[in-house]
């Protein structure tokens, strides 16, 4: 690791992944801790509380993976990353996985040498404006000043969308969501644009959420999901199937409360396979039979996590929408556990 630290200093970008052994699973086990890259603070998705304990929708994925791999959901070191540093942090081995509302795109998957293992939130880019501005559609934003997080796909979508609609705007580049909130609240920009979920989360953190509206236009597809480094298929499988286990658990009605009972008595063999009561799916990934049970045991299945962190009962109040199970008209569809 000394070597990689030296090189990292040289290249600033820390292109040291060569020194990071390909077997991330062994590294994590040896370390006894999962390094998980999260955002620098986005209410509902990843935010440390007053005691420094991280919680949120993205954080829950990290904890589920930690529980599956290490058997302890608290053995996670959360590494806050900005839109600019996240992929470098992953490529250099500083984090083992990213769960940081990052959009799955072609070039990130191929050119940036990342592997997106799935989608944990189907999102789209929207705009938030102050109500007293009297704007009801994004198409009325001619000449507006718009705050935008730099280094994101939203930056490119914004440019494309305004071009397509023949509108002018002034971009104000900001580094983190917190800075964006502050600039928007201070009136340094007319509109704030990011993923609609991020806007809902930002609005929820304002003192006067009722004075801000999210415009109806969704200008892009933003499938957000956890990502790992390219080239370590075993580790990618583990993260992918941990996410799938959470999604499948909701589909089959497995919750943190009833999973012990279902493991023993469920008539559905798929549930039993998922929970390790039948077959040895977990062993195929290099873990043990109970991995999925531990992952689900942390905060429940996908639906439970969603409801507890960003769902309609929370201040963020996001509806399931596209993120409902495929059986409910949504897009969540876990491949079979077989």
């Amino acid at each position: 690791m000394k070597k990689s630290a030296f090189l990292g200093t040289l290249t600033v970008a820390g292109l040291a992944a060569g020194m990071v052994s390909a077997a991330t699973l062994d590294d994590v086990k040896a370390r006894g801790e999962l390094n998980c890259g999260v955002s620098t603070g986005l209410t509902g998705f990843s935010l440390p509380d007053a005691n420094g304990v991280w919680s949120g929708f993205d954080v829950a994925i990290c904890r589920a993976v930690a529980a599956a791999v290490l058997g302890d959901a608290t053995k996670v070191k959360f590494v806050p990353t900005t839109g600019q540093t996240r992929f470098t942090a992953l490529a250099s081995g500083e984090v083992d996985m990213l769960a940081r509302n990052s959009t799955w795109t072609f070039s990130r998957d191929t050119d940036l040498k990342l592997d997106f293992v799935g989608v944990n939130y189907y999102d789209g880019q929207g705009f938030m404006v102050r109500k007293d501005l009297g704007v009801t559609s994004a198409k009325e934003l001619e000449g507006a000043t718009i705050c935008i997080q730099t280094g994101t796909t939203t930056e490119l979508n914004l440019a494309d969308w305004f071009k397509t609609n023949n509108l002018n705007y002034t971009p104000v580049a900001i580094e983190t969501n917190a800075e964006g909130e502050q600039q928007y609240a201070a009136g340094a920009c007319d509109a704030y644009t990011t993923d609609a979920s991020g806007l809902a989360s930002t609005r929820a953190s304002f003192a006067d959420p009722e004075n801000h509206i999210i415009l109806p236009e969704i200008i892009s597809k933003e499938p957000l999901g956890p990502a790992v480094r390219h080239g370590d298929n075993q580790w990618a499988d583990i993260v992918r199937w941990t996410l799938n286990a959470l999604i499948a658990a909701e589909e089959y009605g497995v919750t943190s409360a009833n999973m012990e009972e279902l493991a023993a008595n469920s008539p559905n063999p798929e549930v039993k396979r998922l929970l390790g009561a039948e077959g040895d799916l977990g062993v195929m990934t290099g873990l043990d039979k109970d991995w999925a049970k531990r992952a689900i045991g942390v905060a429940g299945n996908y639906g439970e996590i969603f409801a507890a962190t960003i769902g309609e009962a929370t201040p963020i109040g996001l509806a399931r929408g596209l993120n409902a199970q495929w059986t409910q008209g949504g897009l969540l569809y876990a491949p079979p556990f077989r």
């Binding site: 600033v12 600019q84 470098t88 050119d111 730099t150």
Partner: peptide, 15 residues
Amino acid sequence: GGITLNQTGRELECV
């Protein structure tokens, strides 16, 4: 060093 680096992922070249 910011947006281009980030969008293209060419850390070494950009820096």
